[in-house]
Amino acid sequence: MKSTLDTAALDAAVDSVHRAGIPGLFAEVRDGDAIWRGAAGVADLATGRPVTADLRHRVGSITKTFTAAAVLRQVEDGRIGLDAPVGRYLPELVPGERGEAITVRMLLNHTSGLAEYLPYAYPSLKAFPDLARTGPESLEEHRLTRFDPVDLIGMGVGALATGAPGSTPGLYSNTNYLLLARLLEEVTGSTAEDCITRDVIERAGLRDTAFPTGPSIEEPHARLYEAWFGMIDPPRDHSVQDMSWVGPSASLTSTVSDLNRFYRLLLAGEIVAPSSLAQMRRTVRVVSQEGRTIEYGLGLHPMEGAGQDAFWGHGGTVWGGGALAMTRADGRRQLAVAVNLQRWNRLDSSGRPQPHPIDAALGRLYRVALLG
């Protein structure tokens, strides 16, 4: 089949995102055997070092697809029941009736009703839509704080429930995926990071994807600039950050090439069995961290459309960085993109993020990359 990669349009699209205000971004687009890699802008505002398409990057919640795949491989091996209560495995973390009512599936698709722990771990960062009354102080104060995952889980479990277990729409919550990491540790006897590395990263043959071993990103990488809705001006570099605040729910570093390889193999049924992949693609309605209602599966969600035309993948953000990886259901068309600025939108009087030229420029890049 003839490739529909318009390299000139892709070059123009990434340059447009940079000119709209992103310091630097890089991407890989694939159409069958045809591959385009491009970059625009700088990796370091102080030195002017340019970004290149091979840089390592913190990919945030894209990690959740890797975690979900590792859990489903344990389901395939009979160590975890997908619809078993989490209290069967982790009674000390989710005790009593809630532990009996919340299943592993509910953790994976964010319908557990467990609250997000972040507002409690970072006290000045209240949950959306209260951003207008917050400040960025906690980001700097906790840059090198080593968080205990059990403490973080306790914050989420101890908070007011966001809904009954299994009810929809669910609410996207990192508490769910920290619990899944502890579940992996309980049934395998190894750390979640080791389990995900062995069963998913190495299985996919990813050479530049890994969990952090310290607060710094392995070179080469871009610096990550956090604007916190205009409250940090100029944006501050947060590429050095202890990632224990999210742990195995959102701490992976990777490259755009590795991300495309991972999702291509996943959707081909080569990371988990086809039956598990079918479970991953069963969606429910979930309210995202941005307050939008989306369709969400098991660590995987569609961008739009359905059937063979749907693009499946995940997005992710950390302090200062963002990434998106999407692959068409047939595996032929793919996009992975990384940016080194986050929370560029200013807030209105009600605390709602306002449109920014970056949003429109990214939308154009997605259309050119995915639709040709």
Rank of each mutant, 00 (worst) to 15 (best):
G230E: 08
D237F: 00
T213W: 00
Q241T: 12
A210Q: 11
D237M: 01
E226V: 04
A250T: 04
G247T: 00
G214T: 02
T213Y: 01
P220C: 07
E219N: 12
G214N: 02
E219T: 14
R236S: 06
H238T: 08
R236I: 05
R223M: 13
A250P: 08
H238M: 11
G230R: 05
T253F: 03
I217R: 13
D233E: 14
V246C: 09
Q241W: 01
G247R: 01
W228C: 15
D233P: 09
A227P: 04
P215A: 10
L224G: 13
P215R: 04
W228F: 15
E218F: 09
Y225A: 06
P212M: 01
A250S: 13
D233F: 10
S216V: 14
W245A: 11
G214V: 01
A210H: 12
E226P: 06
R223S: 13
I232P: 10
Y225R: 09
E218K: 13
S249I: 02
V240D: 14
D233R: 03
F229P: 03
S216W: 06
Q241I: 00
I232W: 07
S239P: 04
H238Y: 08
E219R: 13
H221G: 10
I232F: 07
W245T: 07
R236P: 06
P235D: 02
P220W: 08
P248T: 06
A250L: 03
M231W: 11
D237L: 04
A222S: 15
